[in-house]
Design a protein around this nucleic acid. Structure first.
Lengths: 195, 195
DNA sequence: TCGATTTCTTAATCTACATTAAGCTCGGAA
DNA sequence: TTCCGAGCTTAATGTAGATTAAGAAATCGA
């Protein structure tokens, strides 16, 4: 399946498009690729695109006042990623988006997205639905951070991102679940031997 | 301003409705009130409404495996609240919604909401936008929990909910920022005398 | 191919916050 | 008006996870 089929398939789970609409939509997409470790968005920039990952893997993260990184999300193939705050407000954001490995995306510009809303109202529905799903999972993650131990969060992570556990460096898994790499290392050892 | 004007005003910030559309919309709303401490949604139930608060204050919270409460959100007048997971999936949720004081809401049923999407597509846009805003603020709160100290989170909370700081019991402020009431008490003492 | 970063691990020590426990305060029910 | 239970405070003690440090392993640039 080529990249445009992949994204149409993804959208087709939620809304129906005519062939003409589908063609129009794909004509708005711009292929964007990134090498391993390359940044496709940096803090301080205005986020002008939503990225749909077709291969590889991206991560979104911020750097706090003390210089520590915090991973907000990973985006494997079939996922969308953007700095939502910056994309919506068109103000400089505080998110970095980086490729963990060579990655291909289809980028939809903010302008094109707004145009889609006007021309094909079903896209309003599509983005409403994926935003709702994202909201639910961030709410759950917040509650998990408040109520689960680091070990439970790590096990959740392994289930949730089962396919990616190997391609994501431990350091960044630690950052996602909210512990130091040292403590993650200790937990892995413990889970391996004690259980 | 009466309650229906309040909600139309709120919606009017994002979309324009004809008078007929506005009337149709308000005809779908069901007034729901709750006494202090009354639950309008309990864990295990299916959430069938989004609630728009017109007066008073609600809080959404869960109870974890160890019996501890975690406050997901507060809803002051002009805010919407629901158990998004349950509302979207129409499956039993794990959220309680409780009145902190005598509260009036306008409830929009899931059915009515779906009907609105079909009849007045602008509502698709409205709910997309408020869901996006909610997503941004939950992402920020997650990052705050990962990067700020409890003291910084408390000060953020005081700014964000400036108008409510008094009407929300300390116990629930503690639960929102993710500390025990004992530790919040200590922080308040410290901020009062040391600073 | 090989030094130089960067990442991962192990271990000692430290600290922010939790737990436990006890007394205090206050609004509400009888 | 009194009592009672819930919320708030203070303080002693406990602990999950951070910090620091240093060596081992993987990755990278030239």
């Amino acid at each position: 399946m080529d990249n445009k089929s992949l994204i149409l398939n993804n959208i087709g789970k939620w809304i129906n498009l005519t062939e003409a609409e589908a063609d129009h939509f794909t004509s708005l997409l711009k292929p964007v690729t990134a090498k391993r470790k390359e940044l496709i968005l940096e803090a301080g920039e205005i986020c002008r695109y939503s990225y749909f990952v077709t291969s590889g893997c991206l991560r979104g993260y911020t750097i706090d006042a003390n210089g520590f990184e915090h991973v907000l999300n990973f985006a494997a193939p079939n996922w969308w990623i953007a700095d939502m705050y910056s994309l919506l407000s068109q103000r400089p954001g505080n998110t970095y988006i980086q490729a963990l490995e060579p990655t291909s995306t289809l980028a939809l510009s903010k302008d094109a997205q707004e145009r889609l809303y006007r021309e094909i109202p079903a896209f309003e529905r599509f983005f409403r639905i994926i935003t709702e799903n994202s909201l639910v999972s961030f709410q759950q993650r917040l509650l998990d951070n408040l109520s689960l131990t680091a070990e439970e969060r790590y096990q959740n992570f392994c289930k949730r991102y089962a396919g990616l556990t190997d391609s994501i460096p431990a350091k960044q898994v630690a950052s996602y679940i909210g512990v130091t790499p040292e403590f993650l290392s200790k937990m892995k050892h413990k889970l391996l031997y004690k259980k």
